[in-house]
Design a protein around this nucleic acid. Sequence first.
RNA 1: GGGCAAUUAGCUCAGUUGGUUAGAGCGCUUGAUUCACAUUCAAGAGGUCACAGGUUCGAGUCCUGUAUUGCCCACCA
Length: 844
Amino acid sequence: MKQHFELDKAYNPAKYEAKLYQQWEESGAFKPNPDATKEPFTIIMPPLNANGDMHAGHGMYVVEDITARYRRMQGHATLWLPGTDHAAIETQVVYERLLAMQGQSRFDLGREEFSRQVLEFTHKNSPNIISQFKSAGYSADWSRLKFTLDPDIVEIVYATFKQMHADGHIYRGNRIVNWCTNCRSSFADIEVKFVEREDALYTLDYGPVRIATTRPETIFADAAVAVNPKDDVNGELVGETALIPLIDRPIPIIADEHVDLHFGTGALKVTPAHDKNDYEIGLRHRLPEISIIDLDGRMINVPEEYAGLTVAEARQAVLAALDQTGKLLETKPLTHSVGYHDRCGTVIEPLITEQWYLRMAELNAPVIKAFETNQITVYPARFKKIAIDWLNNEHDWNISRQNWFGIRMPIFYKESNDPNKDPYLITADEAEAKAYYGEGNYRAETDVFDTWFSSGQWAYATLMATGDFDRGFFPTSAMMSGRDILTKWITRMTMFSLYRTRQVPFKDVYLWGLVNDAHGKKMSKSKGNVLNPLEVTAKYGTDALRLALTIGITPGNDGSLSEPKIEGYRNFCNKLWNVARFILGQLPEAYSPATPELHSPTDRWIMAKLATTITEVTRALEDYRFGDAGQTLYSLLWDDFADWYVEASKISPNHDLLIYGLETILKLLHPIAPFVTEAIWSELPWQSSQLIITSWPSANKGRTNGTEFEAVRQTVLAARALAAEEQLSKPAILTTDKTLFASAELIQRLARAGEVRLVKQGSGLYLGGEAWIEAGDELIKARQHRLQQQRAEKTGYLKSLQAKLANERFVASAPAAVVQETRDRQAETEALLERIEAQLQSLR
RNA sequence: GGGCAAUUAGCUCAGUUGGUUAGAGCGCUUGAUUCACAUUCAAGAGGUCACAGGUUCGAGUCCUGUAUUGCCCACCA
């Protein structure tokens, strides 16, 4: 006998995944279809760290793939545009660690050579994460891959900078910044991570006043002592002069609201050049800004014995001297937060440097409006408020960095004394600078842009670079990312886009949360609870991971991932595989499918289920409720299609409908589980094209009534339960209902009954509806307590229904449908109680 | 200090505008079968929906407060 379908006994992902992905990509399926009938649908992928590895969090990109695949099947010209990120300081830190292992630092190489090497390193690494993303099945158009340092991207970034400068949005300022002495660069507040630390709070003698500080080494930079004007004790000292110990420099005692009456001594030493709040106080009181820490974190402008010491060394030395001179009055422990650079872990040193700033208030105004007026819809909606709050409070943005790896700012500075020349020139073209200033009279800026300044332009820069911007792919349809970059990226992309294109960059924003471990705890290397996506997909298949990250995870909330969970979805994929294997094995030789006809109650039932599912899944995907879509399909395949329809079909198979059901499920499930669905599809001999490009099913044809089979199902369920409880083998089922009896063979098989008989009057153990299980008095008596239990339960329920209906206010104010439903349930329960009562009577 | 989440079965989580007797997966118990699938099938146990008030005919769902956990922002001399 010839086996015309030869599917493996179990689904073997490894056999198909790489091959299918290659087929998809080579066939051009990931490119926007030029013949698409619907308008373009665009998703820009948040750029991947070119030097990174795929981690569990990247698994959440699956929602972008689901959306892209769904829109593609819907007939939209779909573009999912991928990109890689040079990840500026992050990469620089990584590379410097590599250099350090060879006993080198970036200073040994120099700026040019170092940047060249890091770029080379990045180009060498980037294929790694791309291939990992491909193995996840992500259907991005890799032919359009953009890199954040691509010349065409940089050109666009430069143009924006120049235009913003011309429009007066950019200025240069000498202000206090977050300085990393290790990276030798300034950083934004957002890049500073505060960590609680145990330190000491020292009380120092400042002459007439005592101050408390954690940073005694900065006393040389003090410009004043501040007290709260409401301070009864210290307040009287305002106007007097305090004396800095060790150097005996007199400084004024001033009043400022910022000072906390109850902290320390109630008096604050004000160090404008090395503390953010002190800087603000300094501005309010026009205090001098005395810098005593240089860009390397060493002491300058201090007495000789401290000069050149590191901050930590200076602290100890100053403390010793203070102690010796009796100026150190008290030392007590203090837990407070200290800012660290989030990339390299060095303590942030606030100090004053010259940087470039972007004036945010004006630029953000249209962004706030765009969110407020729902030009951008945020999923979930609560993040809209967070974005608006952030935008309302954003300070001017320091966009210059002193890292070496990044996009150099296109500025040249005047090096001559020519009063007719501007102090700087904005251009990327050195020839222009030379022409303007003359040979030798200018110097190039060495600062680079904050990486968010360039990646903030990603949404349009990528599309402009690929030429898709003018082909209708902008504004993009959806921006989907982790919620952690809502403020630093999504709001800024919106700002840049509104500035440069006068359009919002995307219509929808979808945010996902963290992927946590099996117990909802954050994954971290130190906890050892990290799940490597590449390892688990090798073990269980990519679709299993995708399903695990789709079902049971809700927008914006953290989800948990564990191997047992993934294993469960591996089983689901295998279930689908075996359903297909079984159906295909049933088909006659040279079968080709025709439009299915509905022959039986079972056919009508599954048809109705399929129609409902198509509607529900479509609606869920439209609303970005991926979990609901997945859950619905999981249940349809396993609980309805496999457990009932396929089982029922073993009596008399309706091949066309089995195939229609299978194909419909494959289509609906394809966006979430692309591999197993395409693998099965590829085994269907009558299908010549790929599943990825078939059209999304429509529910129009399936409006049928499934109630007839539903009665069969209820009977079977009741019979199984009873048989299991009483350990009945092949019981006889009796029915008075001819319609039900028409499905006798089916009931017999599904309920594993010995026989199904049509009777005039029911007897035995009641199953509900018009069905009984034949039973002798002994068994019935044995179940008497169960009946009584059931009677009590149902009586209670009936009472609650009756009470509800007796309540005039319920009947008056509840919707008619709800009232009617309650009435129906009351009638049903009454009927059921009658049966139970009758059965109990018969036992007397 | 300000804000946002979460709190539902042993575990991890759903629960769409308030409306059946609150669901799923895993785990557990019992049973089955080797005929698509033991990565299987069937049955079952298991929840006063964190707590206290309130609104409503009706609350897991809305309001107020409390507690616990997590996250974000600001501050911390």
